[in-house]
C-alpha cells in the first residue's frame, strides 16, 4: 500500500530544493544585493546593521520573486532558447502554477517585511520594481518592442534606490544618479550581447534590436548610449557619494568603454564575423567590470568617509 508512494513511473519528476532556488534567479539576486548594499551604505544616514541586513535580504527576496514570475510567464520562450532551456519551468521540474504561486507569495512577503523592517518608501519602491519587471517588462514590453531592454532596464536599476531609501526614508539626487547609471548602462551591455548571441532571440521571436532593425542600427545605438552614459557616470563623482577614488575609476572606465563602443560602431558585420565577434565580446566583458567597479568605487568612498578620506572632504 505504502509502496504506491515510491512508484515514480506515473509521477512528474519532483523538484529538489535547488530547483526552487534556481527559480529565484540567484545570479540576478547577487547583483541586486550588491547594488542595494552600495545604495544603503552610500547614504548619509547610518542604519543599524541588523536592520540593514534584513532589508537587503527582503530586497533580494523581492528580486527573486519577480524572477519566479518572469520564469512562469516566459516558460514558452525559455524552452526554445539554448541559454534558458534548462530553467526549472521549461525543464519540467517546477510546475508553471507553482512558479506563479511562489512569485506572488514571495512578492507580498518581501514588500510587507521590508515595510516592517525599514520604511514605507523603500517598500513602495520594491513593490513598484517587482510590478515593473513582472508586468511592464516581462508581460508587455519584452515581446512587443525592440526597446524592451531600455525600459526594462529600469527594473534592474531600482535596487540602489531602494537601499538608499532604507537608510534615508526618501529619494535623493544621488540615488537617482545611481539609478541612471544602471539604466543607461543596460542598453550597451545587452545589445553587445545580442550582437553575438541573437540566433536564440530570433528563434524565440523576441524583438531584439538586432533582429528588428539590423546590426548596423544596433551598433549605432551602442555608441549613442555609451556617449550619453559617460558624462552621467563621471558627473556622479562631484556629488556627495563621489570623490577622488570614484572620479579616477570612472574616468578610466568611461574612456575604455567609449573606445570599445567606438570600435563596435566603426566595424561592419563582415569584420565582426571574421574575428568571431572579438570586439563585441570584449566590450561585453568590460561592461560587467564597468558596473561592478563603479559601484565598488562608491562603496570605497563610503568606507573611507569615517576616516576623513572619502568624498571631497
Amino acid at each position: 500500500m505504502t509502496d504506491a508512494s515510491i512508484n515514480t513511473h506515473t509521477l512528474q519528476p519532483e523538484a529538489s530544493f535547488g530547483d526552487y532556488v534556481a527559480l529565484l534567479k540567484p545570479r540576478v539576486m547577487s547583483l541586486v544585493v550588491f547594488t542595494a548594499l552600495v545604495g544603503l551604505l552610500a547614504a548619509p544616514v547610518g542604519v543599524h546593521p541588523m536592520i540593514g541586513f534584513a532589508s537587503i535580504l527582503f530586497i533580494a527576496v523581492g528580486a527573486g520573486a519577480s524572477g519566479a514570475l518572469n520564469m512562469w510567464w516566459d516558460a514558452d520562450i525559455d524552452a526554445v532558447m539554448k541559454r534558458t532551456a534548462k530553467r526549472p519551468v521549461p525543464a519540467g521540474k517546477v510546475e508553471p502554477g507553482e512558479a506563479l504561486a511562489i512569485g506572488v507569495a514571495l512578492s507580498g512577503f518581501a514588500v510587507v517585511m521590508l515595510a516592517l523592517a525599514s520604511n514605507l518608501v523603500a517598500a513602495g519602491l520594491l513593490a513598484f520594481t517587482i510590478l515593473f519587471y513582472a508586468v511592464v517588462y516581462t508581460m508587455w514590453l519584452k515581446r512587443w518592442t525592440p526597446q524592451n531592454i531600455v525600459i526594462g532596464g529600469a527594473a534592474g536599476a531600482f535596487p540602489p534606490m531602494i537601499g538608499w531609501a532604507v537608510a534615508t526614508g526618501g529619494i535623493g539626487l544621488e540615488s537617482v544618479l545611481m539609478f541612471l547609471l544602471i539604466f543607461m548602462w543596460t542598453p550597451p551591455h545587452f545589445w553587445a550581447l545580442a550582437l553575438f548571441m541573437n540566433a536564440d532571440y530570433e528563434k524565440a521571436g523576441v524583438p531584439m534590436l538586432t533582429v528588428t532593425h539590423g546590426r548596423r542600427v544596433t551598433r549605432n545605438h551602442v555608441l549613442a548610449y555609451t556617449v550619453l552614459l559617460a558624462p552621467l557616470a563621471v558627473g556622479t563623482a562631484f556629488t556627495s557619494i563621489g570623490g577622488p577614488v570614484y572620479l579616477l575609476t570612472s574616468v578610466v572606465l568611461n574612456a575604455l568603454f567609449l573606445l570599445g563602443a567606438w570600435r563596435i560602431w566603426r566595424r561592419d558585420e563582415e569584420a565582426a564575423q571574421a574575428d568571431k565577434y572579438k570586439v563585441e565580446k570584449s566590450f561585453f566583458g568590460l561592461s560587467l567590470l564597468y558596473l561592478f567597479l563603479h559601484f565598488g568605487a562608491i562603496l570605497m568612498e563610503a568606507a573611507l568617509r569615517p576616516y576623513g578620506l572619502g568624498g571631497w572632504g
Partner: peptide, 15 residues
C-alpha cells in the same frame, strides 16, 4: 531509500 525520498528530504530540510 528511493531517490525521490532523498529529494523530498532535501526539500523539507531546506524549508
Amino acid at each position: 531509500t528511493h531517490e525521490l525520498h532523498r529529494r523530498r528530504a532535501g526539500r523539507n530540510i531546506g524549508l
